[in-house]
Design a protein around this nucleic acid. Structure first.
Lengths: 194, 194
DNA sequence: GCATTTAGTGTACATATGTACGCAGCGGGC
DNA sequence: GCCCGCTGCGTACATATGTACACTAAATGC
């Protein structure tokens, strides 16, 4: 009975299911978003991706591998979203106002993805193999923000942005867009909105 | 043989070991610092505190309880350190320089405690029972920093401080005190050091 | 001094977890 | 058309984990 089920209930054709690896990575992010890093297990990911357990261990032999791919994927998506925001920015846009809007965007419409990304970011404190990915994320943030202001300001805005996202995720009530805007504006050197 | 070991190898006299609860909480922080939140198990804590497993489950029945006490304790210590820093501050001190020194202090001499605190802070994203404690930590930070500048600036410096600590923990090489000082000074409105 | 109460432990158990490994089914060589 | 190698999977197993619970021993009232 065990053997027949093998051919009977396969979810996709055997070898050659391109994209399966990606589906597993995707599922790993979802798990972290829902249950945090402690919830990331081979089995939980397998269930979420609707693949057999052996499949997750085949593609990502150890838990570190799973964590690693989840962090890379999550941070890359986060950066992609921010880069998109930057690209859509009008040259004469009110930067502080737009940045405040970005914070709220990540909190509101991308809440679970954002949660997962920060979770994994901090997990790097304990997993040396993740540190370079977390550092690269910082780097990218500073670069994007810096290219719209100046490099030094990018280095200030990156940690401020991260701190604000975290703080706003936890605060109750969460600060409003206008509130965030005022803080960012002042940190940027302060004159009122144009 | 099992019974005799009970009286034989006790680590402290039976009932009434005041401070045992605290030792367990202390051990919980140590575990989180060393292995992160996923490593926080009743058994790991019991071993670190050198108490029997039943003792940890007696004082903290569920894992949430352990997490909760660890976060409370860690954040309280963090705040205590920062408050001490603030109290020792001369009235005419260069605030930006001193704040940069505080960041480095938390990274250098208190590295593992700091790591644990931030880990637990972020864990609140997934454990509703921890959220109020994390929010309270933010609040305290903003209050301390604000009392030395102005309340609004406290709200800016708190997330900036948290972001800088995290970023500096992960960056390689970690930013120097002078570098941090320059960033903080500029965020505070910018004139060069006195 | 003795009985009662209550704090504190050791142990046992069901379940979850990481991981090793034998086997199936597809793609090439001839 | 047949065989072989290799990718990928289902299963089994040893171990770790949370938690319940029976039991000990100090403290307390008298």
């Amino acid at each position: 009975m065990a053997v027949s089920s093998n051919t009977g209930q396969r979810r996709a054709r055997g070898p050659n299911d391109p994209g399966r690896r990606d589906r597993i990575a995707e599922a790993a992010i979802r798990i972290v978003a829902e249950r945090g890093v402690p919830g990331l297990t081979h089995r939980a990911v397998a269930a979420a991706a609707d693949v057999p357990v052996g499949s997750t261990t085949y593609h990502f032999a150890t838990l570190d591998d799973l964590l690693s791919v989840a962090l890379h994927e999550a941070s890359q998506r986060n950066i992609a979203q921010i880069r998109e925001w930057a690209d859509d920015l009008a040259p004469d846009a009110d930067f502080a106002a737009e940045l405040a809007a970005l914070v709220r965007l990540q909190l509101d419409s991308r809440h679970s993805a954002t949660t997962a990304a920060y979770d994994l970011y901090v997990a790097a404190l304990h997993y040396p193999s993740l540190r370079s990915a977390s550092a690269a994320w910082d780097e990218a943030l500073a670069e994007i923000f810096g290219s719209r202001t100046d490099p030094e300001m990018g280095r200030i805005l990156a940690p401020l942005f991260a701190g604000l996202v975290l703080q706003a995720s936890l605060a109750d009530p969460s600060p409003s867009r206008r509130q965030l805007e005022a803080w960012i504006r002042r940190a940027m050197g302060g004159s009122p909105a144009p």
